[in-house]
């Protein structure tokens, strides 16, 4: 009897661990590579629309981001984790937000800032408050404002430079047609012009469960609500809400930037607040601000609110008083 008890005790060892107890088989690297795969359609669209030579920007950005990651991890005496794909993804996303024909040296500087200041200064993967790729882009926008707003025209349009849909509307009062904006045949940053290609990648990410649908849906409905409200004030002057949805970096931001796991809220309610907040800021900047496009700043501003949003939307402990 006593022997039997002893035997069962040794066989079923009692393990005490702290929560979380549920694990799934998602690893960081698998998620990062899937996101990279989802970027293929809009990357392909970028190369078709703006020419194959733009691959130089992509390579410069990705290589510099990866090299910065490796060097900083060596300096910090941490294991070098290039194989998790996060640095490559940061570089890739940064490249997609840059204007076609951008200087490769400046691209490399942006990637170094993105990984160095955007990510490692805060403590590395998982600790960054702000989306690293957008930190890099914000730096480039401040450092090289002219180069960052010189738009090469797409291959299927017969001019050398062309305004972006939002820029044209703001500075020349000429609206672009919605059809080319959906396909991507307009001026703009490398990866942002083709709504179709971005939606293919985004729907894939939502389907495999990497991107929570709440943030893009909240942002989309937010832009429709706020955009309509402004549009109704004067339909001649202000762009229609659909123009807001397809123009600028909205879709790229909504599907790939704002949904970054680290710098977005963790609760469902928080995601709605976050998405609606970005939509409000972006509409305000586009309509009333001095810049034609405010997607980058909208996401960075709302990134700063994420810790607060998470704190106030924390779920009630089961059984606790309301």
């Amino acid at each position: 009897m006593a022997n039997e008890l002893l035997e069962t005790q040794t066989m079923t060892r009692l393990e005490l661990t702290t929560s979380p107890h549920l694990h799934n088989n998602w690893s960081t690297s698998r998620a990062m590579w899937l996101v990279s795969a989802a970027l293929l359609p809009c990357t392909a669209a970028a190369l078709i629309i703006f020419g194959w030579e733009q691959i130089g920007i992509l390579l410069a950005s990705i290589v510099s981001a990866a090299a910065t990651e490796a060097v900083i991890q060596k300096l910090r005496r941490l294991p070098v984790t290039l194989d998790d794909g996060s640095a490559v993804l940061t570089g890739w996303l940064l490249a997609l937000t840059l204007p076609p024909g951008f200087s490769l040296v400046s691209t490399a500087i942006g990637a170094i800032v993105a990984v160095g200041i955007g990510k490692h200064v805060f403590g590395g993967l998982g600790y960054n408050i702000f989306n690293p790729a957008l930190v890099g882009r914000a730096f480039l926008q401040a450092a090289f404002p002219v180069a960052m707003t010189t738009w090469k025209s797409p291959n299927f349009v017969d001019t050398i430079t062309s305004a972006t849909p939002l820029g044209g509307l703001k500075f020349d009062a000429t609206a672009s047609a919605l059809g080319p904006m959906f396909l991507g045949n307009t001026g703009g940053s490398l990866g942002e012009t083709s709504a179709l290609a971005l939606l293919i990648g985004g729907v894939f990410l939502i389907a495999v469960g990497i991107v929570n649908w709440r943030i893009p849906v909240a942002m989309g409905s937010g832009v429709l609500i706020f955009g309509t409200a402004v549009w109704l004030m004067d339909t001649q002057v202000y762009p229609s809400p659909v123009y807001h949805l397809l123009g600028g970096g909205f879709l790229l931001g909504a599907l790939f930037m704002a949904t970054d796991w680290v710098s977005s809220p963790v609760t469902g309610r928080g995601m709605w607040i976050f998405g609606l907040g970005i939509a409000l800021v972006v509409v305000v900047i586009r309509v009333f601000g001095g810049l034609p496009e405010g997607m980058m700043y909208a996401i960075l501003i709302m990134n700063a609110f994420v810790p607060m949003i998470d704190r106030y939307t924390r779920p009630k402990v089961f059984g606790a008083a309301a």
Partner: peptide, 15 residues
């Protein structure tokens, strides 16, 4: 070398 305009802006001071 392309000058970094950001460095004469306040943001450059902070960075």
């Amino acid at each position: 070398f392309t000058p970094w305009l950001v460095m004469i802006l306040p943001a450059g001071a902070f960075i």
